[in-house]
């Protein structure tokens, strides 16, 4: 279900140029990733090929061994994680257990200095947006797996990131729920026209989510 890009000349979103990822013992690359602003790009590859490391490197959690990470034409390679403005949803929801659902969603806003009540209100709106109205006061361990990932999505979107990375966010869920949630999340992301990269090993999930589907193996070819 590829869409026609809106503007005549699509603007470059999040990109990687000759990016080498890995550590002392294992490397992959040079990789070239190109995405278009406002589109969802899926990167498909088998487990252990380095998809997660690629996302972690784009987010700044892992350092790039060489090459560049660019967002809207700006070089982010040396910008620390918390200044990149790139949100991420992980395989596990990783909701902070000492905070309730609302405080989890408000976490990013609080780090930007937004005051508590404004952040809470914004968090409530985002919970509405992901279909969990009134969940703000719930404890994180009272959520189902699907609900927890929705909260994780709301949390990642709260500080208005300029791009969003999704690292197999549905892999812990069963097949039915996974595809349904993938479709819903794709709709939500499109409603906000956010640039997103979604990595997965599941072809059906990739097609349920993405505008563009790439193979991880093809990233080295360019």
């Amino acid at each position: 279900m590829n869409r026609e890009p809106g503007p005549p000349e699509p603007e470059e979103g999040l990109a990687a140029h000759d990016l080498v990822i890995g550590n002392r013992f294992w490397q992959a690359g040079p990789l070239n990733v190109r995405t278009t602003t406002g589109q969802i790009t899926a990167i498909l590859g088998p487990s252990g090929c380095g998809k997660s490391t690629l996302l972690a490197t784009l987010a700044g959690i892992e350092p790039a061994l060489s090459g560049q990470v660019m967002l809207h034409g700006i070089d982010l390679t040396d910008v620390p994680v918390h200044h990149r403005g790139i949100g991420m949803v992980f395989q596990e929801p990783l909701l902070f257990p000492h905070l309730n659902v609302g405080a989890n969603v408000a976490y990013g806003l609080r780090r930007q200095g937004v005051n508590k009540s404004v952040a809470a209100q914004h968090a409530a709106e985002l919970l509405d947006w992901v279909g969990l109205p009134g969940f703000a006061d719930r404890a994180t361990d009272s959520l189902s797996g699907g609900q927890a990932q929705r909260v994780a999505l709301a949390r990642a979107m709260a500080p208005s990131p300029r791009a969003l990375l999704l690292d197999e966010p549905f892999s812990a869920l069963d097949t039915d729920l996974r595809l349904r949630l993938a479709g819903e999340v794709a709709e939500l992301l499109r409603s906000r026209s956010i640039t997103a990269i979604h990595v997965t090993h599941d072809l059906a999930e990739a097609h349920a989510m993405a505008d563009v589907v790439e193979q991880f193996g093809d990233l080295t070819a360019r």
Partner: peptide, 20 residues
């Protein structure tokens, strides 16, 4: 992972330490 999540949400190293 909790710390990585916090960093991606805009927490500095120090804030991550304090809040997580």
């Amino acid at each position: 992972g909790y710390l990585h999540a916090a960093r991606c949400l805009g927490a500095s190293r120090l804030q991550g330490f304090r809040t997580i």
